[in-house]
Design a protein around this nucleic acid. Structure first.
Length: 931
RNA sequence: GGGCGGAUAGCUCAGCGGUAGAGCGUCGCCCUUACAAGGCGAAUGUCACAGGUUCGAGCCCUGUUCCGCCCACCA
């Protein structure tokens, strides 16, 4: 029989390499555009093409594959869309960095077209790598529908969305103060700015009042921006300064005369000196103040945050150098009153870490309010449910305070904005490298003088002057603009495709909570706007993977783990230094199944999970356990015909009924947990059953009939074994696709399909629920455990059989034990078993008293047991029972307990008190016997 | 400044009103013919602190202390 040749240990690497290509070539991953089956669709959050995947990416791949495989086996027409995100700014930076390193060139050296060619090369390289990593994870993605955010179809969707929003007045161009990264030379959205608390200073500076020898003392954390001050503000009700409102101060260093204004919004009279310098072009508060008071706006920094000629004698300096010079000169002129330590929060560019500089510039925006409102309502009305619910408040808080979205980026890699400037009649788009004309500040309400033509295609003729030469807006769109269309752009939108009809809305959005705003919120807004329906009824937000110390995985920290290293193993030289420390011999191949099961098992609904490779090792052992249980079965199936179905009316033995009942309950709990996205619950339910019920008990109990003479009992046991394994494998398949397929193929089953991945998912069948069998097994298990306890405590070798005496006052317990004594004896290692009503107790025997049934178990071990130890053991047991008794008594000592607590509870406690008293009495009796 | 998590066994975490649990690790006995990646047994907790509600509180409420995260234009 080939089965006997099964190796003792499961080799994941070998099996995993075989199955993925098989499944793929048979087309199991492909969805039908039109089908009788109910649709189920998930779009994979497209990973950034900045590099290869790290272990964090294995989470969405695993969880979504679990859902997809479960639903596919449950009869759904499943579509799981693979894709990759061009990740504009991030990828451009990676390629620029590589270019600098390998060729010592900048993107400007190459020019836009050549640089883009290089980025596309990068995309091909890492895109392929990412797809490969997903395949090794076992992700059953429909590769025939793989997409990229910058492929032609996605680009068409982006242009369509942009033009429609523009025509609806929801996209506009405006000169505003935006977040600018002086290193990346681009605008950023609010979300792309990360805040960090830093130690800084608060400087107090004297501004001389014109025509007086008095000063106004302003407080600032950024003294260099005074070069761009166009006013000084005080609170209108501040008695200290009321008389100065409307007067003029002379800006130190530059000598510019600026007004003293009153502004209740900007100024908090309690803070600092109660006087605020106003720099509208370099601070968001000051900008608003500037708009309110129509102040001039002077840009003193260029795109690299170096001072412009507006800074007069300070022109041409880096902003931090400018600060030093300004402070030194103020000091020299005696205008610096004092410096105090001050904590402040600085904005940093998410990608480069550079301190962001607010900057006045012409950008494209999405008018957000009318898009946000329906997205808020959808969650309020439960059209989209957020799981875990704790994120709902966060979603609302952000959505209700949302600002217009700056979507233009001064980058090369991305979707170029479909706006065209006629070369002959309209003003050219402004060059952003130049400082804006300070004497003619452009206010948003003044509109856009250089109105472009916004169009899906490059226009043929200018409608104003008939010109035919156009220049396309050089800017590209924020990466998240195209991602926001993903749930429908991947299905063919704006074309009216069958896929769109079948799979929109998607079934669930499964992603990390870190991109709730970046991505989920935008999909909600754009999905509802363009498709008139929410993009998905459920958002499941998973926790973030951290390393075992709880730190974020990042390349710079060197704690990123390549999922392929975990799956396939890695040589020492392939590992990062910190990993090599832990794995000096290299990383072992844990296999995709073990990795996936670990991620599922750790996926509690917290904020983050700490991944330890020791856990992966534990679940690798689980795969091996399953393998060996199957191997045991296969070695003992001689004579069994391939199993079609388990006869429900067979004359099952207690163990059969018990395991079928437990299996059935496991099936029910697993499906319920999956329905609630409780991956950890589902995984541990199966784990617990497979290892600690099926393997520990049923497999052991099956040895009797399998090795015995009763042919009918053998056949029945074989059938239950095969049936149970079949169910277990199918239950487990979404979590551990490879080992389950590998084993399932070897089982003698009558199959209607030739892969487990398209076999039906188990359904709980109430007819298998058998509380009676479970109750009947309880005393058997208790007796076995009691005897094992005695043996273990006395260090009796497993090979040594011992006699046992069990006494119970309950005739039903006695009967059960008598009937199933052939279960008890081999599992407890008992040579002779005597079952009786309580009576004379054997001499020289160790004793154990059952917790629930109160049965007394005696193992006469004359000469083997150490009486001192036995005494200590019983005494300790009594102590423990006393503690429990004490806590129960305390309840009854309180008269309110019996009066107010529910009757069931009181009864339960009373029964428990009786049980405990009985147990205590017997333990004491046995203790006395020894003494 | 606002908001949200977390604090339970050595470690990682379940439990969220009625007998404190799991996995890993630790300790003992075992190569018992599926599995030593294994079997059997054992030990281990002022459930962060202080109040309150309740017959009864890791669990609910209030406050405190730490740790972490998110949002926010107070110089």
């Amino acid at each position: 029989m080939p089965n006997a040749e099964l190796p003792k240990a499961y080799d994941p690497t070998e099996a995993e390499a075989r199955w993925y290509p098989t499944w793929m070539s048979r087309g199991y991953f492909r969805a039908e555009a039109i089908s009788e089956k109910p649709p189920y669709c998930i779009v994979l959050p497209p990973p950034n093409v900045t590099g290869s995947l790290h272990l964090g990416h294995a989470v969405p791949a695993t969880l979504q594959d679990i859902l997809i495989r479960w639903k596919r086996m449950s009869g759904f027409n499943c579509l799981w869309v693979p894709g990759i995100d061009h990740a504009g700014i991030a990828t451009q930076m990676m390629v620029e960095r590589e270019l600098k390193k390998t060729e010592n060139k900048t993107r400007q050296d190459l020019g836009r077209a050549e640089f883009l060619r290089r980025v596309w090369q990068w995309k091909e390289r890492y895109g392929a790598r990412i797809a490969e990593q997903h395949r090794f994870l076992g992700a059953s993605l429909d590769w025939s529908r793989e997409r990229f955010t910058m492929d032609e179809a996605s680009s068409a969707a982006v242009r369509e969305a942009f033009v429609r929003l523009y025509e609806e007045g929801l996209i506009y161009r405006s000169k505003r103060l935006i977040n600018w990264c002086p290193a990346c030379h681009t605008a950023l959205s609010d979300l792309e700015v990360e805040h960090e608390e830093r130690e800084g200073s608060l400087w107090e500076i004297r501004y001389p009042i014109k025509g007086s020898d008095r000063f106004l003392v302003v407080a600032t954390t950024r003294p260099e921006t005074m070069l761009g001050d166009t006013a000084v503000a005080v609170h209108p009700d501040d008695p200290r300064y009321r008389d100065l409102i409307g007067k003029t101060v002379v800006l130190p260093l530059l000598g510019r005369e600026i007004p003293i204004i009153a502004d209740a919004e900007l100024v908090n009279p309690e803070f600092g000196t109660g006087v605020v310098k106003v720099t509208p072009a370099h601070d968001f508060n000051d900008y608003q103040t500037g708009l309110r008071h129509r102040l001039p706006m002077i840009s003193i920094f260029d795109e690299s945050a170096r001072t412009t000629r507006e800074a007069g004698p300070y022109a041409g300096l880096d902003r931090f150098e400018a600060r030093k010079r300004v402070l030194a000169d103020l000091q020299a002129q005696g205008l610096l009153e004092r410096e105090t330590k001050h904590k402040l929060s600085v904005g940093l560019c998410q990608r480069s870490g550079t301190v962001v500089e607010p900057r006045l510039s012409l950008q494209w925006f999405v008018k957000i309010e009318s898009l946000a409102r329906p997205a808020i309502e959808a969650v309020e009305q439960g059209k989209t449910r957020i799981v875990p619910e704790t994120w709902v408040a966060t979603y609302f808080q952000w959505m209700r305070n949302i600002h217009d979205w700056c979507i233009s980026r001064q980058l090369w890699w991305g979707h170029q904005i479909p706006a065209y400037y006629c070369k002959s009649c309209s003003a050219r788009p402004q060059r952003r490298g130049r400082a804006e004309d300070p004497t003619h500040p452009m206010f948003p309400e003044e509109g856009d003088r250089a109105a472009p033509i916004v169009s899906r295609e490059r226009p043929a003729k200018c409608p104003r002057c008939r010109g035919t030469e156009f220049e396309q807006d050089p800017d590209v769109l924020d990466t998240w603009f195209s991602s926001g269309l993903w749930p429908f752009s991947t299905l063919g939108w704006p074309k009216d495709t069958p896929e769109l009809k079948t799979f929109y809305p998607n079934s669930v959005m499964e992603t990390g909570h870190d991109i709730l705003f970046f991505w989920v919120a935008r999909m909600m807004m754009l999905g509802i706007h363009f498709m008139h329906d929410v993009p998905f009824p459920v958002v499941y937000l998973h926790a973030m993977v951290r390393d075992e110390k709880g730190e974020k995985m990042s390349k710079t920290k060197g704690n990123v783990i390549d999922p392929l290293h975990v799956i396939l193993g890695a040589k020492p030289e392939e590992l990062s230094p910190s990993q090599r420390n832990k794995f000096p011999q290299g990383m072992p191949a844990y296999g995709a199944d073990a990795l996936r099961f670990t991620l599922a098992a750790l996926m509690q609904q917290g904020r983050d999970i700490k991944l330890s490779l020791d856990r992966v090792d534990g679940y690798k052992a689980f795969a091996n356990k399953l393998w060996n249980a199957s191997r045991f079965a296969l070695m003992n199936l001689k004579g069994l015909e391939p199993l079609a179905e388990l006869a429900r009316d067979a004359d099952f033995a207690l163990a059969d009924r018990w395991v079928l009942s437990r299996l059935n309950r496991t099936t029910r709990s697993t499906v319920e947990a999956l329905s609630r996205f409780e991956f950890a619950e589902a995984a541990s339910t199966i784990y617990q059953f497979v290892w600690h019920e099926f393997c520990d008990w049923y497999v052991e109990l099956s040895k009797g009939p399998l090795y015995g003479d009763d042919a009918q009992a053998r056949k029945r046991t074989q059938s239950v074994l095969v049936y149970s394994l079949d169910q277990i494998l199918r239950l487990l398949h979404p979590f551990m696709p490879f080992v389950t397929e590998e084993v399932w193929q070897k089982l003698p089953l009558v199959r209607s399909v030739n892969s487990i991945m398209i076999a039906p998912y188990p359904v709980a069948d109430p007819r298998f629920d058998d509380s009676e069998a479970e109750a009947a097994m309880a005393p058997v298990i208790e007796a076995i455990e009691g005897i094992r306890n005695i043996r273990g405590e006395s260090n009796v070798s497993p090979s040594m059989k011992v006699p046992a005496v069990i006494q119970s006052a309950d005739p039903a317990v006695r009967q059960g034990l008598e009937r199933w004594r052939h279960y008890l004896m081999p599992l407890a290692g008992v040579s002779s078993l005597e079952i009786s009503a309580p009576g004379a107790k054997p001499q020289q025997a160790a004793a154990f008293v059952g917790v629930k049934t109160g049965m007394e178990i005696f193992v006469p071990l004359a000469g083997l047991i150490d009486l001192t130890e036995e005494r200590a053991r019983l005494a300790k047991e009594i102590q423990r029972v006393d503690a429990d008794l004490e806590s129960v008594r305390r309840k009854f000592d309180n008269p309110n307990f019996a009066a107010k607590a529910p009757r069931e509870v009181v009864e339960k406690e009373r029964a428990r008190a009786d049980e405990l008293s009985l147990r205590r009495a017997k333990l004491q009796e046995n203790l006395n016997r020894i003494i």
